[in-house]
Write a protein that binds this DNA or RNA. Structure first.
Lengths: 407, 407
DNA sequence: CGAGGATTCTTCAGTTGCTAAACAAAGAAA
DNA sequence: TTTCTTTGTTTAGCAACTGAAGAATCCTCG
């Protein structure tokens, strides 16, 4: 260990690989400049990556007066990852390549209340079918990412799935997965600080600080849905009052719409009368379609929700000093066009550190399948670019020390 | 460089030093367990630290069947740091030792609107007096930490002060400094995720995530004062409505008190009638004293502020998944006993991840001088335990690449 | 009391991952 | 063609770590 330039990653190999991914196309000299490593080091590391098939030389840059730079690029089809999203009512499977691009995708009805072992067998079969559909060899698949709204409830499930599929399984929550997906597929800069505001059935946020995912000690960071936006607001299931989710979440929007007879009829809401598997998601979609068709009451409901969400987003941006906010998740996939301008305006107007930098707000290009793609991206990140786990610093440092006699 | 155990710090030396500091008393074997390094490495690193005078052997542990462990401890008086807090009206100087303990402290009236060069000369003189008062040699002083509410306005000032005092100067904001001070003096665990909620003239928070200070890309993270707690609330100077600071900050409390004739008289408020240098701080203190004397109206005002602050604190804890929240800053030093139970109750009741872990809320034992002590702690941290700056990952990676010809 | 075992701490050779610097290769300019 | 610039590779050397052996210290038990 020596020299001034040090690296945040576990290994230089991972650092260089991540740079190649983030840059898209980059030369060895570019890597030297970006890493602070010397040419010699880059040379050997790149040779190793080429030997493994992860990186390929793809052409030349124009000469700047001497030898032309050889351009490097990720070999997108060298490895694959499976992403699985467990929704209330559906299970979505995607197979992505190294670049995070979807090469196969299937979606099946949720498990309902089947026995766990039956669900595992079924999922293993469907993952197998997904892989076979594009004929990828099993040993080129890095692993399986499994995301859900409450991943901490699926610990055992993950282990069983690991045995059933023979693939390493990593768990995460939908919002964090979506954030990593955005980060991996290059929508935001390599070291940027951003959040993926996730609108599904609830409201959540995945947080990436300076290029590193932040999950929090309980794995529950980014819980913006229970930020208070009205101290005297309605009671929320979390025990508090005036939570963002209770006032502006898709559930709240749907409840308000159902209370409106005319709107219920015009939008064709199912909830309350039928036993649809995903009443909230289905009705939220119906309301969004009605708004797009020009239904003023539907639009008003969504805009009200957007105004609340905007102040929640501002709080999030203020606390984390965000540079970018990406709107993603199934509900933004449907209604993002209503929310985007409202959130953008709020952050342009009232982000507290706007004298230092602005907050760029954008809609994810793949908001609907973001969780599943993100699940796959987590696998790519954890297998290819393992961050330093860092020094183990037990909270009670003196725990293993015998009693002390001072001299 | 080899082996599995890697370290988050710039050097193993810094990692070990930080562990010794965090543990208080620890043996070489304890360091081996905590770091994952081998005994040989720890042996050489510790020898180096002892040679530098930073660490000392202080006794023995009881034998566990073999040779007794030699206990190590930070040599608290090996180095010192100066902390300076620029308030609206006062300049507070502290000199601390390596443990963050204050060995000298002076406080002088603020600079008012004197010329910058005069202020610099004066501060350099006062820093000199501080150091001379305890007779510490100049070369044992690591540097000077300068904190204020808006440090980004003092960039040039810091450089000038560096020249005038001959000490390295680091700048930071009051809330972050307070958080680092808490971290350094060992009130919270070494890897804990916590925030220092800072109540001065405004409301801020210093954020430490997993033992590492988080400042944000604009250096403005933790701006909880402009979290929205009421979408239809009063307008705030930041351009938004219903900000925590506008509803519950010391300024708001004082404004409400001044509007109450009887309370103004009972508490002896100065604002409005005199031109005190710190009308808000002075009047907030007067209100707190009145509340402590049993004035129901004063107490009601503070409790109303506390309820708002509690929901703001809950939002902060939810977003960051906090383990600990420390209340600090001059205003909490005076009124902390009113706020503490309200915040504690709110987080016990409605922290969203309370099934995973609770949030411990406590009052800083040195809330009043927290910024100045924190300023010194920043110096200690930046000089003794420099964290890895990490890989330089320019946002536009391809910026320096010439145009590409694909083969 | 002294041998033997346990534990702590040190020493040292060997490995790894980097740097610095020399060198080779490829193109531009004259 | 010659010379210069830039890119990329090779090599020796260095620093930080590991692993293993050994020294030091302390306890236990015959």
């Amino acid at each position: 260990m020596s020299g001034p330039a040090r690296v945040t990653h576990a290994s230089t190999r991972a650092a260089v690989l991540d740079l190649v991914r983030a840059a898209g196309v980059i030369s060895r000299v570019g890597l030297v400049n970006a890493t602070g490593l010397t040419g010699g080091t880059i040379s050997t590391v790149v040779r190793g990556l080429i030997d493994e098939g992860l990186v390929a030389e793809t052409g030349h840059a124009e000469s700047t007066g001497g030898k032309r730079r050889v351009m490097l690029q990720l070999n997108h089809f060298a490895r694959y990852a499976v992403g699985v999203h467990l929704d209330e009512a559906r299970i979505t499977y995607v197979l992505t390549n190294l670049g995070g691009a979807v090469v196969a995708r299937i979606s099946r009805a949720g498990s309902g209340d089947s026995e766990v072992s039956a669900v595992i067998t079924r999922m293993a079969r469907e993952v197998g079918a997904l892989i076979d559909s594009v004929g990828v060899e099993r040993d080129r698949i890095l692993g399986l990412g499994l995301v859900s709204a409450r991943p901490w409830e699926h610990g055992d499930f993950g282990q069983m799935l690991e045995r059933a599929t023979g693939l390493p399984v990593v768990l995460d929550n939908d919002a964090t997965a979506a954030a990593i997906g955005e980060h991996w597929s290059g929508g935001v800069g390599a070291t940027s600080t951003f959040a993926a505001l996730y609108l599904g059935a609830g409201i959540g946020a995945g947080v990436v600080l300076g290029g590193t995912t932040y999950r929090g000690p309980g794995g529950r960071a980014g819980e913006i849905g229970h930020a208070c936006v009205d101290v005297d607001g309605p009671e929320c299931r979390c025990g508090a009052r005036g939570c963002l989710e209770a006032l502006a979440g898709p559930g709240a929007v749907v409840a308000q719409a159902r209370a409106d007879r005319a709107l219920s009829r015009a939008a064709g809401l199912v909830g309350g009368r039928t036993r649809a598997a995903t009443p909230v998601a289905a009705d939220f979609a119906a309301i969004s379609r009605a708004a797009r068709r020009g239904n003023a009451r539907a639009l008003a409901l969504l805009e009200r929700s957007a105004r609340y969400l905007a102040v929640g987003a501002r709080t999030l941006a203020n606390v984390l000093d965000l540079e970018v906010l990406v709107l993603t998740g199934p509900s933004f996939a449907i209604a993002g066009s209503v929310y985007l301008p409202v959130l953008r305006a709020e952050l342009d107007r009232a982000f507290i550190a706007r004298d230092a930098h602005s907050v760029s707000v954008r809609l994810s290009p793949s908001a609907a399948s973001a969780p599943a793609i993100g699940a796959a991206a987590i696998v790519l990140q954890s297998e290819l670019v393992p961050r330093q786990t860092g020094l183990r610093l037990p909270d009670d440092l003196a725990a293993d020390e015998p009693p002390i006699f001072v001299r």
